[in-house]
């Protein structure tokens, strides 16, 4: 009863200070939601169990290393980690496809469809929307150059003419835009590959 009154942020802070029972409250409070989310994606209890475990191992390591900085957003942060691990799981399985051999030669085991399947299409859309959100975070001058170069396919000469800055400045802004995006990606553990 009393546990319900303690916020996630307080529990996280207590856990970081060394109060181990706080973790138990956090796990028990959110286990059903996180596990259901993972299961809804992988549809396999054992795999869901593994991903749930890996998710919390990552949570524990991050908290113990003092790298957690998303105050008040514990559940969305854990959901994001589990989401990334689910994507990793599908990616790993795509790299090493399993064939069930029924004895007869199955032509579909050597033929493959190069078009993206539903899972990969979803991942691609997610990645593209994440990249767009990252671009929105950039300073205006860097964002302008990056959008012109990557989305409008303009040359740096054209960008320089349009924005009224030198080619070198445009190149510099592009470089800083990429560096800044990489920093945000590293900081938030975002996975942007399909």
């Amino acid at each position: 009863m009393q546990n319900e009154l303690i916020t996630d942020a307080t529990l996280v802070s207590n856990y970081i200070k060394g109060e181990e029972p706080a973790l138990e409250v956090l796990i028990k409070r959110h286990k059903q939601r996180i596990y259901s989310f993972i299961y809804s994606k992988v549809l396999d209890k054992d795999i869901a169990e593994d991903i749930f475990q890996d998710t919390f191992i990552k949570v524990i390591k991050t908290l113990k290393r003092g790298k957690y900085n998303e105050e008040g957003k514990f559940l969305p942060w854990v959901m994001r980690i589990s989401h990334n691990l689910v994507i990793d799981h599908f990616r790993r399985n795509n790299r090493m496809p399993k064939f069930s051999n029924s004895g007869d030669f199955n032509i579909f085991s050597v033929l493959s469809d190069t078009a993206l399947d539903a899972e990969r299409t979803l991942i691609k859309m997610q990645v593209e929307s994440d990249v767009r959100k990252l671009i929105e975070e950039l300073p205006a001058d860097q964002k302008e150059v990056l959008v012109m170069r990557m989305y409008n396919d303009m040359s740096f000469k054209e960008i320089s003419d349009k924005t009224g800055v030198s080619i070198n400045t445009a190149l510099g802004r592009m470089r800083y835009a990429l560096i800044n995006m990489r920093k945000i990606i590293d900081k938030h553990n975002i996975i942007l590959t399909n």
Binding site: E20, L23, E24, K31, Y35, Y39, E49, Q53, K64, R65
Partner: peptide, 23 residues
């Protein structure tokens, strides 16, 4: 229809892991 909760062993493993891990 499924009871969508992780196994108790998994939770226990995580709590033990947390106690054992020091940075």
């Amino acid at each position: 229809q499924l009871d969508l909760n992780p196994k108790d062993e998994t939770i226990k493993f995580l709590l033990d892991y947390s106690k054992a891990l020091s940075v």
